[in-house]
């Protein structure tokens, strides 16, 4: 074992450790973001299903409908307010 060998080994180890640390940090960030997106997607699906069931149930009042529409359409503003009041919308989900 020579001093040159020790220096080269140290450089190789430092470089590979630094690269591995960077990749692990990036992977951890990606995994965290993917998990967040997964949870958000699940939350959106829950909101969609609950909205569908709510609109098909008898609990929907007639005042949600647009009285001026001849083909029984919903009043968008009233429907949005009622959905925000009754559906389990999380803080990360908003209606447009």
């Amino acid at each position: 074992m020579t001093l040159l060998e020790v220096v080269v080994s140290s450089v190789v180890l430092a470089g590979s450790s630094s690269a591995a640390l960077g990749v692990w940090n990036q992977s951890a960030t990606e995994l965290q973001r993917a998990t967040t997106l997964d949870a958000l997607s699940l939350q959106l699906e829950i909101v969609r299903i609950s909205t569908d069931r709510w609109l098909q149930s008898d609990a929907v009042a007639a005042d949600l409908l647009d009285s001026s529409s001849p083909d029984c359409r919903f009043n968008a503003e009233v429907l949005k307010a009622a959905a925000a009041d009754r559906l389990p919308l999380g803080s990360e989900v908003s209606m447009h």
């Binding site: 074992m1 060998e5 020790v6 080269v8 080994s9 140290s10 190789v12 180890l13 470089g15 590979s16 450790s17 690269a19 591995a20 990749v23 692990w24 992977s27």
Partner: peptide
């Protein structure tokens, strides 16, 4: 030392 360092580096890079 050098083969050991290269082996450890290879393991680190392959793992990452």
């Amino acid at each position: 030392v050098l083969p050991l360092a290269l082996t450890v580096s290879a393991v680190l890079l392959l793992g990452s």
